[in-house]
Amino acid sequence: MTKITLEESQAERGAHHRLALMVGDWEGTTKVWFRPDELADESPCHGTIRLALGGRFVIHEYEGTLQGKPISGLYILGAHLDEARYQQAWIDTFHMGTGILFSLGDEGSTSGDFRVLGSYGDGEGHRWGWRTVVTIPGSDQLIITHYNIPPEIGEIKAVETVYHRRPRPQG
């Protein structure tokens, strides 16, 4: 098996090229569910995604509200070439408290989506899963969907952000 270089991954079909497609300023709507099929909140949001460390990673910083209260967050997404998998570290002012959620995913997805899975503790000794899927349906749209995975219940859609690229200033 041949190892791929960063430069090769940044080429047209590589994982780092796909990461770079997310770079930009975004605005959209975030929906939140605390229970299946019961929308708890829908509010505007905005975010910025930029390359970091020579295109090795993207950093997504975002802000919005949840039930009228401000929230903000940041995640770093990368493609680990030696392990052929995506990696993500996520922090925010609502879900994670003072923790960092680390997630891993198979880079081999043929869909072009970024899919990672992590877990967090519920404070009572149980681990819950948290799956994140980033989809790029077009050059000016980005969809980030999070699924909560409670023990013994299964996956539940928890958060969905639908972004549209902000127009670039003329001038």
Rank of each mutant, 00 (worst) to 15 (best):
A89Q: 03
R50T: 15
L101M: 08
H95T: 13
W33M: 01
E107I: 08
E63G: 11
I49R: 09
I59A: 14
A89F: 11
Q67K: 14
H95F: 08
R35S: 06
G78F: 04
V58W: 02
E83M: 07
G55N: 15
W33T: 00
R35K: 10
E42R: 14
A79V: 00
H80S: 13
H46A: 14
E42S: 15
E107L: 13
D41L: 06
L74G: 04
S103R: 02
L51H: 07
T30V: 14
I49W: 05
L81K: 04
G47I: 11
R85C: 09
R35E: 11
R56M: 12
G68W: 13
T98F: 09
P36K: 09
Q87H: 11
L104W: 10
Y75L: 14
I100M: 07
D92L: 00
L66A: 13
F57S: 04
Q87Y: 12
G28N: 04
Q88E: 03
T30W: 07
I91R: 10
E61V: 08
A84R: 12
E38N: 10
H60D: 04
G73V: 09
L101C: 11
F102C: 10
I91E: 01
L66C: 09
A52P: 00
S43F: 10
I71V: 15
D106P: 02
Y75G: 00
Q67P: 12
L53W: 13
G54E: 10
I71C: 09
H46T: 04
A89M: 05
G68S: 06
R35A: 14
R85E: 12
T30Y: 08
Q88Y: 05
Q88S: 06
Q88F: 02
